[in-house]
């Protein structure tokens, strides 16, 4: 009897400590989220887990369902089924104030002054007018646009308006920031500025969801990624892990003299091309279980090696290979274009 009671108490203590440990709380967990529009399935049992304080890339071609998922997280539309947990709590109306959202289709009130505009949007997110005023001033100073307060949005350039939109997204200091194609239409200078701000926000402890179909953004910024294609999630994980998973044991060798013969039963010659006077670049794929060091060892005996490196897959490579596997020609074309 006593033993049973003791084990129950232990169990309770274990549960309590587990749930109160902030390390275990993910920023967002979606389980089997499904959304159907008349005659078309927009999300098909999509599950994702977004760890806190990461930059999470939500990738996929246009029409894959990214925006639908984001709108569901923002409670703009409702899901048909599935569970969503934000910071350990089921998604509810209070989360609106903890989420900052920069939609792909974004704009501002054209006739409204910058200051009033930001005040209004911040107040809708639950800030008091005084607090909003204070924070707007800080941000305008940060972007060196203090004298814009009285300017009407219609008098701003597109790049200027984008700064204001970004400020309005982060003004209420949300813990979760969702950026849908944040760089579309940004000029390089602004894109750089925003990138810096995003990294700074991550340092401060924000979790950032990045929705995009542009692979270079993912390559440099994201820690985690998920790929959504045709309403389904087809891949998810830390970026490094995903890349490792798609490593093909391919190496690039720069060498003098074009003759070397690696044993054909263990190596595959992908291509060879001259890159200078008596200088060649050869791409080889090693057989399973052969490590880089072994390849170098074998090469040194055969040719004069100038450089050697493993060819890691880019995100674009991974997607193309995945999509090929899915046999989706249209997506491949789309990715090549972008």
């Amino acid at each position: 009897m006593f033993i049973i009671l003791r084990s129950v108490i232990f169990r309770i203590i274990a549960v309590l400590t587990e749930s109160s440990n902030p390390k275990d709380v993910d920023a967002l967990i979606a389980k089997e989220v499904t959304k159907r529009y008349t005659g078309h399935l927009a999300l098909d049992r999509v599950s994702i887990t977004i760890p806190e304080k990461t930059i999470y890339g939500l990738l996929g071609p246009n029409g894959a369902g990214k925006t639908t998922l984001i709108r569901i997280i923002n409670q703009i539309i409702n899901r048909d089924s599935g569970d969503i947990t934000v910071f350990g709590e089921p998604l509810n109306a209070r989360h609106v104030e903890q989420i900052g959202y920069l939609p792909e289709e974004r704009g501002l009130y054209k006739k409204l002054e910058v200051g009033e505009q930001l005040l209004y949007l911040a107040q809708l997110k639950g800030l008091s007018r005084a607090e909003a005023m204070k924070r707007i001033k800080v941000w305008l100073e940060k972007f060196e646009i203090k004298d814009w307060w009285k300017k009407k949005v219609e008098d701003l350039s597109k790049g200027m308006a984008q700064k204001i939109q970004f400020i309005s997204t982060v003004l209420h200091e949300p813990r979760l920031i969702i950026l849908d194609e944040p760089f579309s239409g940004f000029d390089p200078v602004n894109a750089q500025l925003i990138t810096e701000q995003i990294l700074e926000l991550k340092e401060k402890g924000c979790t950032i969801i990045f929705s995009t179909h542009r692979m270079e953004t993912v390559e440099s910024l994201c820690d985690h990624i998920a790929l959504i294609n045709k309403s389904k999630k087809i891949l998810e994980g830390p970026k490094k892990q995903v890349k490792d998973q798609f490593r093909s044991n391919t190496f690039v060798v720069e060498h003098r003299g074009n003759h070397f013969h690696l044993p054909a039963e263990r190596y595959e010659l992908i291509r060879q091309k001259p890159v200078g006077e008596d200088l060649y670049e050869t791409v080889i794929r090693a057989g399973e279980g052969i490590k880089g060091n072994q390849v170098i060892r074998e090469l040194i005996d055969l040719t004069e090696v100038q450089s050697f490196q493993e060819k890691l897959p880019t995100m674009a490579d991974i997607f193309i290979s995945l999509v090929k596997a899915e046999g989706d020609e249209a997506l491949r074309k789309h990715l090549l274009e972008s």
Binding site: N74, Q75, I76, V96, I99, Y101, L102, P103, E105, R106, G107, L108, Y109, K110, L121, L124, K125, Q165, S168
Partner: peptide
């Protein structure tokens, strides 16, 4: 106006 200036999605997220 709200729809064409595309502010509406930001507003309905609040």
């Amino acid at each position: 106006d709200e729809k064409t200036s595309k502010i509406v999605e930001v507003i309905v997220s609040s």
